[in-house]
């Protein structure tokens, strides 16, 4: 216990666990979501302690920020839009026949066993074991960027990243497909003050986001974090009704969603000539290509995240048809 930071670590770990439990057990759903957001932020803090600032940023921005917004929006929707909840319960979105407590305890017991087993396995794993460290540092010069995480995301394992963008695309297609024909009840409108605040803040956020994207090449930050921050712009626009999606915007929206994917994939394929395989960027153009991809992907990510937040596809409502469009 010679390191004072250990105490901090212990406290932080304990707090994280406590928040995790609390967010699952607290009765009020709104409270649960709030606790979850705090949990996410503390987790990000813990990852900073583990020298993973990029991850922490991503978690804070996307894992906690965007997710939190989505959760709150859903909660709001459930409570006020569909009106199913009313005042009846803030406890539960869906009343079910209760599962017997015996079953719950059995689950808990099994999970306890699992925890035990996993802990044993974890403790038996090599400390600071083998990794990609050497490989990465060896390959860094040829990557075209200075920041290793970015190099991995956009070069070494660019295929994964492309597929990750595809996941986002799949998600937005699925969400558009799922949400439809909802009664167009008014979205939450922010007060005047907030609108003013938004008008002031928006440019700043855009700048921060762009910076993050740029910085990603050398320092923590990058397309996803940048995209998330830019998505926040979209969120604000939507919330303040500064921007209201219209059916006519669908084409542009679609293009925005697919932009990152298409460019990423196209570049990956286009470079594959002259004996090269896909994703094998020519060394002298690597940085430019990566920046191009990153930039466009950021736009896509921002648009996608904002669309995910907004939910349904902007269609002209034709009441009967849409409601019963099955």
């Amino acid at each position: 216990m010679n390191d004072p930071l250990v105490i901090f670590d212990l406290l932080l770990g304990g707090a994280i666990i406590a928040l995790a439990i609390a967010s699952l057990t607290v009765r009020d759903l709104f409270a649960a979501v709030v606790l979850f957001i705090i949990f996410g932020l503390l987790s990000a803090l813990a990852w900073v302690r583990l020298s993973a600032p990029d991850v922490a940023l991503a978690e804070a921005a996307i894992g906690t920020g965007v997710t939190g917004a989505l959760l709150l929006k859903t909660l709001h929707h459930l409570r006020f839009v569909t009106g199913t909840l009313g005042h009846q319960s803030a406890l539960s979105v869906t009343p079910h026949t209760p599962v017997p407590s015996g079953v719950i305890w059995a689950n808990a017991a099994f999970c306890g066993l699992i925890t035990l087993g996993l802990a044993v396995a974890f403790l038996g794993a090599p400390q600071a074991g083998p990794g990609f460290d050497a490989l990465v540092s060896e390959a860094m010069p040829a990557s075209g960027v200075e920041h290793p995480v970015t190099a991995i995301l956009l070069n070494f394992r660019a295929y994964d990243t492309l597929m990750e963008v595809v996941v986002l695309l799949a998600a937005v297609i699925a969400v558009w497909q799922i949400e439809r024909g909802l009664s167009d009840a008014p979205a939450p409108v922010m007060g005047e003050v907030w609108q003013g605040f938004a008008r002031l803040v928006l440019p700043a956020i855009v700048v921060v986001g762009t910076y993050l994207l740029w910085a990603g090449a050398e320092a923590p930050g990058g397309a996803f974090q940048g995209g998330a921050v830019l998505a926040a712009v979209g969120l604000l626009l939507l919330l303040t009704r500064a921007y209201v999606p219209r059916p006519g915007h669908r084409g542009i929206a679609r293009c925005a969603f697919v932009l990152g994917t298409v460019v990423f994939a196209a570049v990956a394929l286009l470079v594959a000539s002259g004996g090269r395989v896909a994703f094998e960027y020519p060394a002298d153009h690597a940085k430019a290509l990566i920046l191009l991809i990153e930039g466009l992907v950021t736009i896509s990510i921002a648009a996608t995240l904002a669309a995910l937040f907004h939910g349904r596809e902007p269609v002209a409502l034709r009441n009967k048809e849409d409601r019963n469009d099955t």
Partner: peptide
């Protein structure tokens, strides 16, 4: 009703670990 399928997930992980 008891969502035994869910319980089975945990039970199976524990079992396989064991």
């Amino acid at each position: 009703a008891w969502r035994l399928g869910q319980t089975a997930i945990a039970a199976l992980i524990a079992l396989v670990l064991a």
